[in-house]
Design a protein around this nucleic acid. Structure first.
Lengths: 100, 100
DNA sequence: AGTATATTTTGATATTTGTCAAAATATCAA
DNA sequence: TTGATATTTTGACAAATATCAAAATATACT
């Protein structure tokens, strides 16, 4: 799957958007995150995985825990992609046409 | 489906993003759009419908043709939603918390 | 080594999504 | 009104997705 596609797909699920929102003000481990959602830890882990593949979150391990945090640098990418979708005259330069 | 959800879902498909991109520099009718894509007109019409529900495109009829154009005002909404997802300290105001 | 805790992975399943072909609808033009 | 063109709608189907329970993995503690 293309990089952009995995990014848009990752944003298309409400649970994943809630996860991002929960991480806005600081990192959280998987267990604490799981208490915010009424789904199994397995399902949540699946969502973490998609967010990670889309480069929307970073992880580090601290002992038994996996700590998730936002990868805010991707935000700029999303903005660029949206501009590319909507704004006439703001096309990607030749040869670096953004994949849509 | 919530307004935001239909918006994110609509953006999650590559064909639909291509449609938006094709409309960036001006409106097009359904038939001309269909020549840009290797899928049936029925399938394309389905995509048009989702884009319309997400308020990403507007339509008008001109005789037998349906003319699609971008609804650029929604671009601001998307930007707001993304800020709400990523930027700490830029939360929606109380009582008008953005649905995610 | 053995047990407990945190998290991910796997396999199964129900739902959603994108697609096509064919039927239906709308408009135009003779 | 009849026929042609443009588009949407419908019904069927395959592929993708979200979910769960259970098994597997990784780390910590005694």
């Amino acid at each position: 799957m293309s990089e952009n596609q995995s990014l848009f797909k990752a944003l298309a699920d409400p649970t994943r958007r809630q996860i991002l929102k929960a991480l806005k003000n600081g990192s959280m481990n998987a267990g604490d995150l799981s208490e915010l959602f009424p789904i199994s830890k397995g399902s949540l882990s699946h969502h973490f995985n998609l967010l990670k593949k889309a480069d929307l979150v970073k992880t580090r391990r601290n002992g038994q825990q996996i700590i998730y945090s936002l990868n805010t640098s991707v935000f700029e990418d999303v903005t660029t992609l949206l501009l590319d979708l909507f704004k006439a005259g703001e096309n990607a330069e030749d040869g670096e046409q953004n994949e849509i």
